Amino acid sequence: MEEKHIQGKKVIQFNGVVREFKPEDRVHVQRIFSEGMMEMIYDTSIRGFRYHPESLLLYSAMTIAGFVLTKCWWMIVLLPVLVLCGRYLCSRWVILAYLTEAMRTDMSHMEEVYINSPNSCLWVAVLKDQVVGVVAAVHEGKNSARLKRMSVDRRFRRCGVGKALGWKVLEYAVAQGFSTVVLGTTAYSAAAHKLYQGLGFQCVAVENGHMAPSEPTFPLIGIFYRVYLNHYILEVQNIPVDLCKRQE
């Protein structure tokens, strides 16, 4: 990493390389992706709690009802604790199901899905011979690319790795003649949204209560697991390829 000061602000610039995935990167990519997904358990269950007032109202009503029915003051303490445990366990179950499916499909067949397929690619960020991040792009729709599988080793975050990976996807989209790049994220971390917005993406829709196709279903999922799916889009027709290269 390299620190620069631009207009009085400290900017950390990634001075590694972003290159196409190689078979020997497989273990490192799977580790970074898995660790990133596991962090989503806390993100969706605890950090995301305050973004869902409908859930807060429901849990408050459950607590009040429990107190009215039992006349026990300890219910006021016990139910919120049980609610938080329920949210964490449901998030863990959902995230693990999603991770298992991803590892069974594309993350175990990266060459077939991303490298050997037309209009798709997978890149890794490498710093001092160490893989520190991953991102993929796939053709979607008539003339659009989807940015997916973005994950950065937590030890190397806030070092410009994510931005370098993002610009690689934009460079690829421009070179392939795509008109837009889209992505979806359920992250509540402000850093994730700041990264995408810094690359030029705009949030065009927010879906509340999103459920991925691979997520397990049971009666309490709707109560203890609710997330926002943020849809981002970036028009890339007017981005010169050399501009993307200069941003790496």
Rank of each mutant, 00 (worst) to 15 (best):
A136G: 04
D106G: 07
V241H: 12
F67G: 09
Y51L: 14
V113D: 13
R146A: 10
I6L: 04
V68M: 12
F14E: 02
R47I: 09
K4Q: 11
L78N: 06
G48M: 01
A145S: 12
K22F: 02
K148E: 11
T44W: 00
S91Y: 01
K163A: 09
R146C: 15
Q202A: 13
A187D: 11
K168I: 08
G66S: 03
I223F: 02
A190L: 11
L122D: 07
C203V: 15
F201K: 06
S120L: 00
S151N: 07
R155A: 12
E39R: 13
Q13C: 10
H52W: 11
D242L: 13
C244R: 02
V161C: 04
P219A: 02
L82M: 07
K10M: 05
A102W: 00
E207G: 09
A205M: 07
S55Y: 11
Y51P: 00
Q176R: 04
C90P: 01
H5E: 13
R26A: 15
A191L: 09
L234K: 10
L229P: 00
V138L: 06
A175D: 01
V27C: 11
L170S: 07
E112Y: 03
S60F: 12
G133S: 06
S117E: 12
Q130D: 12
E24C: 09
V181P: 01
V126R: 01
C90W: 08
A97P: 02
S55M: 15
R50V: 13
H193L: 12
E24T: 10
I233T: 10
I32C: 03
D242H: 15
G166Q: 04
A164R: 05
A175C: 00
M37T: 06
Y172K: 06
T217Y: 14
P240A: 01
S214F: 14
P23I: 02
W167P: 00
G200F: 03
A137E: 02
T100W: 13
L243D: 10
I12Y: 06
V161F: 01
S214T: 14
P53Q: 05
L99M: 02
